[in-house]
Amino acid sequence: MGAELEGRVAFITGAAHGQGRAIALSLAKAGADIVAFDVAAKIEYPAYRQGSTEELRSLEAEVAALGRRALVAVGDVRDAAAVQSAVDAAVAEFGSIDILINNAGIVAYAAVDEMTEDEWDAMLDINLKGPFLVARAVVPVLKRAGRGVIVNNSSVMGLRGGNRLSHYVASKHGLTGLTKAWAIELAPFGIRVVSIHPTGVNTPMNDGLAELEGSTALEIAERSAGNLLPGVPWIEPEDVAELVLYLVSDRARFATGAQFTLDAGLLTR
């Protein structure tokens, strides 16, 4: 199993920490070279800590220690020029891209009658427009190769509603829709497209969201989730990474246009 992605290149957004980092390391262990794209700076909304350049550099070192190559690129998924520059650099360094993980995203609470237009725009721009801009830059590379996999990291909220989360839910339902549309459009080129839908994940985002809410990460997880399995307020980034590894491998060669939940039973309720 250790070399099932040998010779492949994975472009991962939001790679500095959390789910993106776990996915990068999992794919590197399976033999893939990694392009790690992250804003690596504090953004205006939401005002919790994002990834950092230090985390990107330590990820680069960890990938190298696994015997794989890593290219780190700092940029915002809302910045089409920065995205294209990173894709061009990846192709120059590795020759191609085989896997795209649209992982970068944000979450924040806001009542619909209290939400500002800027908050709405930031959520939709990062969570929905961002994946479009990244895919627009990467898909021509995948088409030239005649194969590829795109994994869009949605959420259980991309398949249901959520209290005080209308902008987040709208963005994630939109990403689910993009997955279905792209799967149809790109199938003739040998490109598979799937979405994943985790329940709450134990990442720095939970800590940041708790700080904004004056709560704790555990309370945030329990409020958002209500997982069916007992004693599971959240899952770990490595759990998500294991699912992604399967989906980008040839073991899932017939999976496209589908939604894969990793929700500890939440959506069964």
Rank of each mutant, 00 (worst) to 15 (best):
F11I: 01
A15P: 04
A15F: 08
A16N: 09
D33F: 11
K42S: 13
S52M: 12
S52I: 11
E55S: 13
L56T: 09
V72P: 02
R78I: 08
R78K: 15
D79I: 10
A82W: 13
D88H: 07
E93V: 10
F94H: 10
S96F: 07
I97A: 05
I101G: 01
I101S: 02
Y109F: 15
V112F: 12
M115L: 14
D121W: 01
D125M: 00
N127T: 00
L128T: 03
P131I: 00
L133H: 01
R136T: 07
R144G: 13
R147A: 15
V149K: 00
N153G: 06
S154P: 03
S155D: 11
V156M: 09
L165N: 05
H167I: 05
Y168R: 01
L186A: 09
G190L: 13
G200V: 15
M205C: 07
G208F: 04
L209A: 09
A217D: 00
L218Y: 03
I220S: 04
S224G: 06
S224R: 14
P233N: 11
W234N: 06
P237M: 08
D239N: 14
L245V: 02
L247Y: 01
D250R: 14
T256V: 09
D263M: 02
A264I: 06
G265R: 02
